[in-house]
């Protein structure tokens, strides 16, 4: 058919425009209520799986499930609701053998990729390139240290410190008593402080 233009069937002028352009209400509501938590969901999935590709798959899967379950959502904190779905998707991924054959990534390449990713992160209060660089290094170190925390301490710490869920929400999400959440969190923070010890002092210095 070569040069011929793509063939479109003739349409009445109104045949297309007359269709209601708006989405069903529940899709619009979903965008308003759940979609704003996409970054958070990705952050959670990413620290759970420690695998950028898997994290994307998990979050896509979670949003598909969330969208389908959304008509049954009974209100309450949408973030905690979404996180419960993300967590289930993560557990399915683990059950499906995900993570067992985790690809080892070249460290050099990783930090370069991270640096590149970080370069895209808007940093409103950065002043000089030097300071931006220090912050980037700091962030990279912290990411690596969090990833090195064993479970279930990593999950608890991420939910509390990065996602700011309450003890009660974390307890419900991870299906343990609040006392367990508290002891996990204390232990996670202790481990983080220990791992950051040498850098910790420097970090504090750099901030002054």
């Amino acid at each position: 058919m070569g040069e011929r233009k793509p063939f479109f069937r003739p349409r009445l002028a109104f045949s297309r425009d007359a269709r209601p352009p708006r989405e069903p209400d529940h899709a619009r509501q979903f965008r308003e209520v759940v979609l704003p938590h996409l970054d958070a969901a990705y952050n959670f999935a990413r620290y759970l799986s420690r695998d950028p590709t898997a994290a994307e798959d998990i979050v896509q899967d979670a949003f598909l499930r969330a969208f389908k379950a959304f008509p049954n959502w009974r209100g309450g904190a949408p973030k905690a609701w979404l996180f419960a779905i993300v967590r289930n998707c993560f557990l399915d991924w683990v059950a499906g053998g995900g993570g067992a054959h985790k690809v080892l990534v070249d460290e050099g390449a990783l930090s370069e990729a991270q640096a590149q990713a970080l370069a895209n992160v808007a940093d409103p209060d950065q002043t000089t390139p030097e300071e931006a660089l220090i912050r980037r290094r700091e962030a990279e170190t912290l990411r690596a240290v969090i990833e090195n925390l064993p479970e279930p301490f990593r999950e608890t710490l991420v939910l509390r410190e990065l996602e700011e869920l309450s003890y009660k929400e974390i307890a419900a999400l991870t299906a343990v008593p609040i006392g367990t959440v508290m002891s996990r969190l204390a232990r996670a923070r202790q481990m983080l402080c220990d791992m950051l010890q040498p850098q910790g002092a420097a970090l504090q210095e750099a901030r002054r």
Binding site: L38, D39, A41, Y42, N43, R46, Y47, A55, V59, L118, V121, A122, D123, R135, R136, E138, A139, E140, L142, R143, I146, E161, L162, E163, R189, L192, C193, L196, G200, L203, Q204, R207
Partner: peptide, 15 residues
């Protein structure tokens, strides 16, 4: 101090 460090931009991942 730990909390402040964790709030550094770039620690939390963005989609």
């Amino acid at each position: 101090a730990l909390r402040e460090a964790l709030a550094t931009p770039g620690v939390a991942h963005r989609a």
